[in-house]
Amino acid sequence: MTDAAVNDVSVDTRKSGRFLYGASVVFLCAWVIVPIYFLLINTLSSPETVNSFPKPFIPEFDFGSLQFFAGFSGMLTALKNSVIVALLTMIMSIIIGAPAGYALSRFDFPGKGLFRMLILLTRAFPLPLLALPLAVMFIQTGLDDTAFGLALVHTTLAIPFAVLITFSLFSGIPIELEEAAWTLGCTRLTAFTKVVLPLILPGITASAIFAFVISWNEVFAAAVLTIENRTLTAFLLQNLDTSPLHLKFAGGFILVVPALIFIFAVRKYLFAMWGIANR
């Protein structure tokens, strides 16, 4: 074989490699963006356009459906409830999850493997299975129909992620850094606050966001466990069932947008988390 032939082959493979890369990027972007874009178009269209076919590619900027929701009674309360529950979930899952992650990465204790297993297993039981017994228990303890009660359930859902994410974050920080801090006059606690915390704060934020989004999107427990204090998902589920199509789209849009804005605002921390976790 001559050098030229070798070069041709490698140029060819490099070209097709680049094409494959480009195609994958386009495909993945389309996968995420196209549905959201249609949601946007339909939300900003008049009821007639929503029911017609083919769809226009440029929104009409008809705010009728959105105005309807803005005026819909209970809507703003539901939005507020969602935010409260999501924030509570976020705080609780970090307060409980991060120490567990720390313990998993730093201490050797009997049953460590089993503990990790169990944390993952909490996701093995489908929520519908748990929702009814939970509802009964909540009614007995007076936790039913409260933001805190719902946040407890959402925290259970978010904790496995919080533990595993913080576990990998803590593991990415060499124990010697903490040990050095101990020899320099730190206790375990001050070594944590002065050395470990600054290093993992971005990652902690990211896993908090994760918890927020999990709670924000959760609908089943929210629908079963709340009546008066519905969250946005539960509220929309209840009311959209019987609504016309254009209102369904607008409702979906209202649900998606806050989460999108939130994630966009804190994307820096998400990337930071992956950067650390991948190291």
Partner: peptide, 10 residues
């Protein structure tokens, strides 16, 4: 005071 084998610089 200790100097660590892998430095452990913060």
């Amino acid at each position: 005071a200790m100097v660590f084998q892998n430095y452990a610089v913060f």
